[in-house]
C-alpha cells in the first residue's frame, strides 16, 4: 500500500512536469495535431488511393490510425528525457537513498509515460472527430483498440528506458524516438505502399509499424480478426519487443542501482 502511494506521488510529479512544460505540450500534443491537419487538408487530396485521388474524408479515415501512433511515438521522446533528467541531476540517486522500493521508481516513469501517451492519442482522436472522422467499431473492438494502444505505449516506453539511462545528456536521450517516427513514415501509416520502390516496400511490409497501423485501422473500421496477418504480426512484434526491452531495461537499471 505504501509503495502504491509512493508510485502515485512520483507518477503525478512526472505528469505535472509534462503537462506544465510548454515544449513538451507543443511536441507531443500540438505537433501531431498540426501534422494531422497538414496531411489531411494539404496533402491528402493529392494522394492516390486505389488509383484515384482520395477525398479529404477518405484520406482522414485512412491516415488517422497512423497519426494516433505518431502522437504516442512523440511522447516516448519525453519519457526518455524525463528519465535522463532525473539521472543527470541526481534525483534518481536521491530516490534510491530513500525508503522506496526500486520498482516504484522506474514504474512511475512507465505509468506516467503510458498515461501521457494515451492523453496525446485521445487529443488526436478527438481532433479527428472534429474533422469528420467517424470510426465503425463495436464495444468489443473499442476495448481491444484501447488494449492495443496501451500495449503500444508500454512497448515504446520500454524501448525508451535503456536509451535514457545510457545517454549522457538530455539532448541525446530522446534521439531514439526518431527511429520510431522514421518507421512510421516508411510504413502504410500515411500513404499506401503500392507506389513505393521495391526494397522500400519490402521493408515497409515487414517492419512492426505497418502491422500496428494495420491492426489499429482494422479495429477502428470493424475489420478486426484475431487471425488476420496484421493481428498476428502485431502481437508477435509487441510481445517480442516487450520481452527484449524489459530485459534490456532491467539490465541497464541494475547497472545503475543495486537492489538491497
Amino acid at each position: 500500500m505504501q509503495s502504491i502511494k509512493q508510485l502515485m506521488v512520483l507518477t503525478k510529479r512526472i505528469l505535472k512536469q509534462n503537462l506544465t512544460n510548454i515544449d513538451t505540450v507543443i511536441t507531443v500534443i500540438l505537433m501531431p495535431l498540426f501534422m494531422l491537419m497538414f496531411f489531411v487538408y494539404v496533402l491528402g487530396g493529392n494522394i492516390a488511393m486505389d488509383g484515384v485521388n482520395a477525398s479529404t474524408g477518405e484520406y482522414l479515415k485512412y491516415a488517422l490510425p497512423g497519426f494516433l501512433l505518431v502522437a504516442m511515438a512523440m511522447g516516448s521522446a519525453y519519457t526518455a528525457v524525463r528519465i535522463n533528467l532525473d539521472k543527470t541531476k541526481g534525483f534518481l540517486k536521491r530516490l534510491h537513498s530513500l525508503p522506496i522500493k526500486r520498482w516504484v521508481i522506474l514504474g512511475s516513469h512507465v505509468l506516467a509515460s503510458v498515461i501521457f501517451m494515451i492523453i496525446s492519442e485521445s487529443v488526436v482522436l478527438i481532433a479527428g472527430f472534429v474533422m469528420g472522422y467517424r470510426p465503425d467499431l463495436s464495444v468489443g473492438n473499442f476495448a481491444l483498440f484501447v488494449a492495443v494502444s496501451l500495449l503500444f505505449a508500454f512497448t515504446i516506453t520500454l524501448i525508451a528506458i535503456p536509451f535514457s539511462l545510457k545517454a549522457n545528456s538530455v539532448e541525446s536521450a530522446g534521439g531514439f524516438s526518431y527511429i520510431i517516427l522514421m518507421l512510421l513514415f516508411v510504413s502504410s501509416a500515411f500513404i499506401p505502399m503500392d507506389g513505393m520502390i521495391k526494397p522500400v516496400r519490402w521493408f515497409a511490409e515487414n517492419q512492426p509499424m505497418t502491422a500496428l497501423v494495420g491492426i489499429t485501422r482494422d479495429l477502428l473500421n470493424n475489420n478486426f480478426s484475431f487471425t488476420s496477418s496484421n493481428s498476428l504480426q502485431s502481437f508477435v512484434w509487441l510481445i517480442g519487443l516487450i520481452i527484449l526491452f524489459s530485459l534490456l531495461s532491467y539490465r541497464r537499471y541494475k547497472m545503475f542501482s543495486v537492489k538491497l
Binding site: K5, V9, L10, Q17, T20, G90, L95
Partner: peptide
C-alpha cells in the same frame, strides 16, 4: 548529490511536498 535535485517547474513548497509524501 553534487547537483541540485530540484524540479525547476515546481515551487519550493511543491518540491518539498514530493519528498515529504515519498517519506510518507
Amino acid at each position: 548529490s553534487q547537483t541540485v535535485t530540484l524540479d525547476d517547474e515546481f515551487t519550493g513548497y511543491q518540491n518539498l511536498l514530493i519528498i515529504a509524501e515519498l517519506r510518507l
